[in-house]
């Protein structure tokens, strides 16, 4: 591990609550160890602000190991910052230079209202899943796990899609705030697996309808979502969703 440290200027979006408008505030941090994670750097800032009697920056975070999907912010215009396939909590300060200015903004979309500072409301994503992102099976009475063989390659493809952590970076990076990658990943996972077949058409229709209702924008195939996705989810899943949707709409 290196023992380097850097000085930074942070420009952070500060917004008291969803009713008020926000502004950017500038903070300077000295001697930030490059071994710190981005969130630990924010911890250091917050400890400093607290000691000065100022309001610390509110930001969402939980597991801090890149899997829960709670954290996320736009760093210098890129959701989750400059490292590919990395959540904000797994981004380390060694990827920045001494003297850098970092502009830190919340994930933005009409469907993601800001609650405070960098904290947003992503319940719209939950409602998309509620519309049909499941197999309608009650607890109990299910067949043996090996009753239906699933080719290894299919299981792997489904797993590729299922790896989505629901962080919302795809929406944040999309020029139109579309949730196609998120929705496409879930529809893909379930339409690939035999367990998802009975409700395949209804699911595609219901989830796409829910997505539009929540105020997400439309896909213009800009591919920005795929580029920032911390789990490397491919836009192939969007194509698969489109296929499912077209099939469901025209072939009913």
């Amino acid at each position: 591990m290196t023992k380097n440290s850097i000085d930074l200027t942070l420009k952070i979006w500060r917004q008291e609550n969803s009713r008020k408008t926000g502004v950017f505030e500038t903070y300077r941090l000295k001697d930030i160890s490059t071994d710190m994670s981005f969130l630990e750097m924010l911890d250091v800032l917050n400890e400093k602000l607290t000691r000065e009697g100022r309001d610390p920056v509110a930001f969402d975070h939980d597991c801090r190991e890149g899997i829960c999907g709670t954290c996320g912010a736009v760093i210098n215009g890129v959701a989750h910052g400059p490292e590919p396939e990395t959540t904000l909590c797994q981004l380390h300060m060694r990827h920045f230079e001494n003297g850098d200015t970092l502009v830190i903004e919340p994930f933005r979309s009409r469907a993601f209202p800001v609650k405070k500072d960098l904290i947003i409301d992503r319940s719209s994503l939950d409602r998309i899943i509620q519309a049909g992102g499941y197999v309608s099976v009650n607890t109990g009475g299910t067949p043996d796990g090996n009753a239906t063989p699933i080719p290894s390659a299919t299981a792997e493809l489904a797993m590729d899609a299922a790896a989505c952590i629901g962080c919302g970076a795809c929406v944040a990076s999309c020029p139109n705030g579309a949730a196609m990658l998120f929705t496409g990943a879930k529809i893909s996972q379930l339409s690939l697996l035999p367990q998802g077949q009975p409700e395949r058409k209804e699911r595609a229709m219901a989830m796409v309808t829910a997505m539009d209702k929540e105020g997400f924008g439309n896909c213009i195939n800009a591919k920005e979502c795929e580029a920032v996705c911390p789990k490397g989810i491919s836009i192939r899943n969007i194509a698969r969703m489109n296929r499912e949707f077209v099939k469901a709409s025209f072939l009913g």
Partner: peptide, 15 residues
């Protein structure tokens, strides 16, 4: 789509 992205980022960057 413009409405869906109602608030522009201060730093705009294309990945």
């Amino acid at each position: 789509n413009r409405k869906a992205r109602d608030h522009k980022y201060k730093v705009q960057k294309r990945t």
